[in-house]
């Protein structure tokens, strides 16, 4: 083979249920060994994309290839992939260990290898103590971890994870992230969907934002954040009069009277910040504290997947969000 094909290559993918269009022409390409995160609000079509790519669902039109093979040739795709669906797919009547051994048997790993691998995975997912208990007795998070462990029994080249960390506590989530990073270190490609922007930020090489069946944005976390013009400066004052005076000067500012603070939109450049502070200084307004708030992925997500302009609430909600990244001055 001359050039190795991308792990996942999708073009013009469409899917409708009846007259409800769920995917309206998706194009994306995921290089081998990378992590791709698909973000999107409920009902955006994330699971539908995963189902098509994992041979569970036929697309109406468009093409999807895994490592160069068309997904319609299910028998060629299935040995290449491993999938954790949105809803845990574990056998409730079997114990955790038996579930893993069953998977190992289905991949025909041999008795000794199966047992060893099951023990290893139980350990890795912090389930050793529950290994002999049946699936029914597991908590939601334990079931999710067992589900993920079952996905790793095979040694696939592409792994699909549909909301893998939904329902996991923070410790398990971080453990999961470590496991995912470790997998890509071994050349495995990961395609995941998530509701957690932080997760995409932490893990993904590229992020696609899906809304109403359309990829509304795509890029690295930084690229997406840069698309967000809405950086702002937060000014805090020590007295209400100061706040009132500043608000009089800065018509575009948004007031937060309880915190005695103003939020002023900015392009983030040092020059405009200096101009702003100089204006306040000239007017004799004393600023107690200044912080620059850059847009985080939450803002990007909310802005990109904004509902039609029938509600005026949403933009205000964006502006008022607490942001993760603050740069203190």
């Amino acid at each position: 083979m001359a050039v190795s094909p991308p792990a996942i290559e999708v073009s013009g993918l469409r899917k409708a249920y009846g007259d409800k269009t769920v995917l309206d022409g998706i194009d994306l390409s995921v290089p081998q060994g990378s992590i791709y995160a698909l973000l999107g609000p409920n009902g955006a079509g994330k699971t539908t994309v995963v189902n098509i790519l994992t041979t569970l669902l036929p697309a109406d039109s468009g093409t999807a290839r895994i490592l160069g093979d068309d997904v319609r040739r299910a028998e060629r795709i299935r040995p290449l992939i491993s999938v954790t669906g949105q809803f845990a797919a574990v056998d409730n009547l079997l114990t955790g260990e038996e579930n893993l051994i069953m998977m190992a048997n289905l991949y025909r790993l041999g008795r000794g290898r199966a047992k060893a691998l099951a023990a290893e995975l139980l350990e890795k997912f912090d389930l050793t103590a529950a290994g002999k208990a049946r699936g029914v007795t597991y908590s939601g998070g334990m079931r999710r971890r067992l589900d993920l462990a079952m996905t790793l029994v095979a040694e696939p080249r592409v792994i699909f994870l549909d909301e893998p960390t939904t329902g996991l506590d923070p410790r398990s989530r971080h453990a999961m992230w470590e496991i995912v990073r470790d997998l890509t270190g071994r050349g495995v490609t990961i395609f995941l969907t998530t509701q957690y922007l932080e997760e995409a930020d932490q893990l993904a090489d590229r992020i696609g934002v899906l809304d109403h069946g359309v990829l509304v944005a795509e890029g690295s976390a930084d690229e997406l954040k840069r698309r967000m013009p809405g950086a702002s400066v937060r000014l805090e004052f020590s007295a209400a009069e100061q706040l009132a005076a500043a608000a009089g000067l800065l018509a575009e500012a948004e007031r937060d009277p309880k915190a005695l603070a103003l939020r002023v939109p900015t392009d983030g450049a040092l020059r405009s910040l200096r101009v702003l502070l100089d204006r306040l200084d000239d007017a004799g307004v004393e600023v107690a504290k200044v912080s620059v708030l850059s847009a985080d992925l939450d803002d990007v997500f909310l802005a990109l997947t904004e509902r039609p302009p029938d509600s005026m609430e949403r933009p205000a909600a964006v502006a008022g969000r607490p942001t993760a990244r603050k740069e203190m001055l």
Partner: peptide, 13 residues
Amino acid sequence: TQGIINRFRTMPI
């Protein structure tokens, strides 16, 4: 109905 069939369906079985 309980999901495991979809796991089996994505496997080479």
